[in-house]
């Protein structure tokens, strides 16, 4: 994976504040093609905000985000085309409630990528089968369980052929028995070579799948490194404490 090291995303001193409350103080990191970066850290530390800034669901108040070397915050940058290339999977799935499973996966392709109905249909169906939802193409979102909805949401995002996939706590809203199916779907994507940035509390999963772990606390990256290093030999006190608490809770 590391042979070419083509840089896709480059965050430089990203800042975000709501009024006087500074959520992100200074976040800088790179994501290379094919890399899987996992953000961990305590609640309210800025993990999700970082992810939402990359997708521009939140407008950064300082710093720069470069996509293939171009600043996405520049006034003339076409944000809609960019967003189509950066897929997002939400904690609450956010499937379009007025559309069935198949339409959910087709609408973005048709409207944004201008694909033909036939092409969009075939791509959507392939991806739905990949996540194990091929049998539910006519169901409405509200008829599915959380885990099923999340897998459809993944298929919807993948159908746009994005260069980067963002996962914002994709399993946090699910019943425990649903988590496995969603993680399996994500593993498949990882094996297929997708570039992924995810925020998760599934530590074991993060350790197995990630190339790099970022520990974000209080609006800054407190520590980063390979999974083996972060999980087994954390250097920083905050990281140690966080992981310690986490392990205790899991027992």
């Amino acid at each position: 994976m590391s042979e070419a090291k083509e840089q896709i995303l480059n965050l430089k001193h990203l800042k975000k504040s709501y009024g006087n409350h500074q959520v992100l103080r200074d976040i800088s990191f790179n994501v290379n093609k094919g890399e899987i970066v996992t953000i961990i850290g305590p609640s309210g530390g800025g993990k999700s905000t970082t992810l939402r800034c990359i997708n521009l669901l939140e407008e950064p108040t300082g710093g720069e985000i470069d996509f293939h070397g171009k600043n996405i915050l520049a006034p003339n940058f076409n944000r809609n085309i960019y967003r189509a290339k950066v897929g997002m999977v939400f904690q609450q799935f956010n499937l379009f409630e007025n559309k069935n499973v198949l339409e959910n996966c087709m609408v973005g392709q048709e409207l944004v990528l201008k694909r033909s109905k036939k092409e969009a249909h075939d791509i959507a169906l392939t991806n739905l089968k990949t996540v194990g939802m091929g049998a539910y193409i006519n169901a409405k979102p509200q008829q599915l369980s959380g885990g099923q909805q999340q897998r459809v949401a993944i298929a919807r995002t993948v159908s746009m052929n994005p260069e980067v996939l963002l996962f914002d706590e994709p399993t946090s809203a699910l019943d425990p028995e649903m988590v496995g199916d969603v993680l399996d779907a994500m593993k498949k994507l990882a094996k297929a070579g997708f570039t992924m940035i995810m925020v998760t509390h599934e530590m074991a999963f993060a350790r197995d799948i990630s190339d790099e772990i970022l520990f974000i606390n209080d609006g800054v990256i407190a520590e980063k490194g390979a999974p083996e290093q972060i999980f087994n030999h954390p250097k920083e006190k905050v990281t140690q404490k966080f992981l310690h608490n986490f392990k205790r809770n899991e027992l």
Binding site: L57, R83, A84, N94, N98
Partner: peptide, 30 residues
Amino acid sequence: TPEGQFEAASALGMTHTQSMWHIILPQAIK
């Protein structure tokens, strides 16, 4: 209409008009 519907639509790269017309209004009218 839940905020997540707007967010999911714009995360796919839809313009405001597209997300209104295809996602939000059908739900709102119903």
